[in-house]
Amino acid sequence: MTNSSHSDSRISGSIRKCGLDDAKLLHRLSVETYVDTFDGTSSDEDMQKYLEETYAEPILREELANPDSMFFVISMPSGAQTEAQRQGHRSGNAGADSADSACFVNPGDFADTAGADTGNLSNSTDSVNPTDSANSASPTSPVNALDSTETSAGYMKLNFGDAQVEDMGLDAMEVQRLYIRKAFKGCGLGTQLMNLALKTARERGLKKVWLGVWEHNEPAKRFYTGKGFVRVGQHAFWQGDDKQTDYLMAREV
């Protein structure tokens, strides 16, 4: 980034719905953000097993093809920085979002147009290396860039009807996954995605939105509580062969 004399202006992420061609991108985003969030919460073997059983590209393609599921990717201009990065500090893994800081960008640092070229992503489909994905977490890494002007910053998966992992009824929608990359936490991107989720539920005439969150993920629980979600139950979550507990949280639309 150049040391431009332009004044800083607050920016927001751009969101688009994913298609089958986004399986590679979602694979990399999913592995990177999951490892960043849950590394050390089980054995390496259990983590590896979970990643391979959940985020392999063929599995993601099946999910993308399911008419009762929707994926969205949120992107930021490549010149964007969190306030923490501007002051030389690494962003913390504090949950889906934070209201304490904002993203800014020098408008002259990037072009006005952007595409969605994922040609630089890994071709791996059958194995997942969490170490490689964690090491590629820099927002300027070519393996994570959408193109020269935008960088993928996070994603969300919504489930309807029978695609929900719990039978919450046909009038409910599940937010199964909502992850923001470490470098972009504190930019309000989690809030943007959650607002889209609630808007989607309202447009479909649904009455309830729900999700599962690990019982020990305090930042995420605070985030969802702040969005109006309350605990309504719990269920078992298997990270490999490690049985864990997720709290179920829900709110009316």
Rank of each mutant, 00 (worst) to 15 (best):
S122N: 10
A84G: 00
G88T: 05
I59C: 02
L189Y: 12
T140G: 11
P142C: 05
D126C: 15
V165W: 07
I180V: 15
Q164D: 10
E174M: 09
E62Y: 05
S133N: 08
N93R: 04
D109C: 06
E166V: 12
F71N: 03
T54I: 02
K157I: 09
D167I: 01
A183C: 04
A134S: 15
E57Y: 01
H89T: 01
A114H: 08
E166Q: 13
E63S: 12
G79K: 02
N144Y: 11
T54C: 08
K182W: 00
E63T: 04
G169T: 04
N159K: 09
E53M: 00
A183I: 02
M76D: 00
P77V: 11
E62I: 11
I74G: 01
V105E: 14
G119A: 15
E62G: 13
A114G: 09
M70C: 08
K49A: 14
L193Q: 04
A99S: 10
N129V: 00
K157W: 09
R86S: 10
E62A: 14
G95M: 00
A80D: 02
T151C: 06
A137I: 12
D100P: 00
K185A: 00
D109V: 05
L158E: 11
Q85V: 02
A56S: 15
E174L: 05
I74T: 01
T149F: 13
S136M: 15
A102N: 07
P58I: 13
P107L: 04
S133G: 11
N123A: 14
D97T: 03
E52P: 01
F184C: 01
N93Q: 12
R90K: 15
E52S: 05
D100I: 00
L146P: 02
R181V: 02
G88E: 12
K157F: 07
M194Q: 07
M168I: 01
A99V: 04
L51Y: 04
T151L: 10
Y179A: 00
D100M: 07
Q87N: 01
E150G: 01
Q48C: 04
F110A: 14
Q85G: 04
A102K: 06
K185F: 00
E53A: 06
N123T: 10
Q81W: 09
Y179Q: 03
K49H: 07
S101Q: 11
S133W: 07
L193Y: 07
V128T: 13
S148K: 15
F160Q: 06
P130Q: 12
P58M: 13
A116P: 03
G188R: 07
S127E: 10
D147Y: 09
A94T: 08
D68H: 06
A153K: 13
K49V: 10
M194R: 07
D132E: 15
K185D: 04
A145D: 03
I74N: 03
K185S: 02
D167Y: 04
N66L: 09
P107K: 07
G88Y: 05
S98V: 01
F184D: 02
E83V: 01
N106Q: 08
R90V: 15
E166N: 06
N93V: 10
S141P: 01
L121M: 15
F72Q: 03
M194S: 11
A65T: 06
H89Y: 06
C103K: 02
A56G: 02
Y155I: 12
S141K: 05
N135L: 13
V143I: 14
D147P: 05
V105R: 11
T82D: 03
L60G: 12
G79C: 12
N129Q: 07
T191D: 08
A163F: 04
D171K: 11
R181D: 08
A172P: 05
S69Q: 14
L121E: 11
